[in-house]
Design a protein around this nucleic acid. Structure first.
Ligand SMILES: [Mn+2]
Ligand SMILES: [Mn+2]
Ligand SMILES: [Zn+2]
Ligand SMILES: [Zn+2]
Lengths: 135, 135
DNA sequence: CTGCTAATTAGCAATTGATGCGAATTGCGT
DNA sequence: ACGCAATTCGCATCAATTGCTAATTAGCAG
């Protein structure tokens, strides 16, 4: 995801308005590696801007995802997780606390056994217990 | 997943009853490689046994999953998919029709960049367009 | 600066997949 | 055949997310 300043330009150029709510979310998401859910972002946003609507959070997240600025990922943890890191990487998910960590993998593994399946991308999810929960 | 006959024994030994509804689902699931959703199984079951409840389908699927006879997998396609194949394998999911295919992968890829994360397992999901949808 | 207008906000209803609950039913060991 | 615990199944409920829309507002033109 680009910086709040760059996003401001990009939004205006697309005919989208840059509201205080959106600016707040730009800031909360930029460089965020915690893979937050909409709920978590709503809680964070509410601290800085009491009264902001969960609906607006969803709206802005969807807008950013549609623009390719972030990815929405479903790890089966109950709610979608949002990742401003759109570079190629993989994830490790804790079975206990649902924390999501970025993982660098050497290369994409090969697939065999399917004829005629046109692969667009491969996603690897490592599941286990994170360092925090291990104690 | 074991055969309906073996499951019948296993259920009785655990104190669980073998009802016609469960027998039907044993049969629908055994050797099934289509990774059906609860909805799909309910539709199939309803043909053979009109009046069967979706609730019962969920119940039995959860029982089987708890016994390790099948796995419930969330591919983010809207509903959980059930897989009676509990051997180590991976999946390819079609972006267009949500079909799920089994894939054999040489071996699990290595992970790096995380200290203290105890990996239990790794799941790979290939996404793209299946042979049927390519036409 | 002022006004216009299309985009946005935010509250609430609706949707979807799945589970909780409980009265009526039924498998199955004795 | 009996008895009782397990099961069924309809309905209410839940959680995450989206649809809808009246009121508000950003941003541009004059
Ligand atoms: Mn990430
Ligand atoms: Mn499978
Ligand atoms: Zn953890
Ligand atoms: Zn397809």
């Amino acid at each position: 995801m680009r910086s709040p300043a760059e996003l401001t330009q990009a939004f205006r150029q697309t005919g989208l308005k840059v509201t205080p709510q959106r600016q707040l979310l730009f800031g909360l998401l930029h460089g965020n590696t915690s893979h937050p859910s909409a709920d978590v972002l709503f809680a964070l946003a509410s601290e800085a801007m009491p009264g902001i609507s969960l609906r607006t959070v969803y709206q802005t997240l969807n807008d950013l995802a549609a623009m390719g600025e972030l990815q929405s990922i479903d790890f089966g943890t109950g709610s979608a997780r949002f990742d401003p890191n759109v570079t190629d990487h993989q994830h490790a998910v804790c079975n206990e606390c649902d924390a999501v960590h970025d993982v660098r993998v050497s290369r994409a593994p090969k697939m065999s056994g399917l004829e005629g399946f046109d692969i667009h991308d491969a996603h690897i999810v490592y599941r286990g217990i994170c360092a925090d929960c291990a104690s």
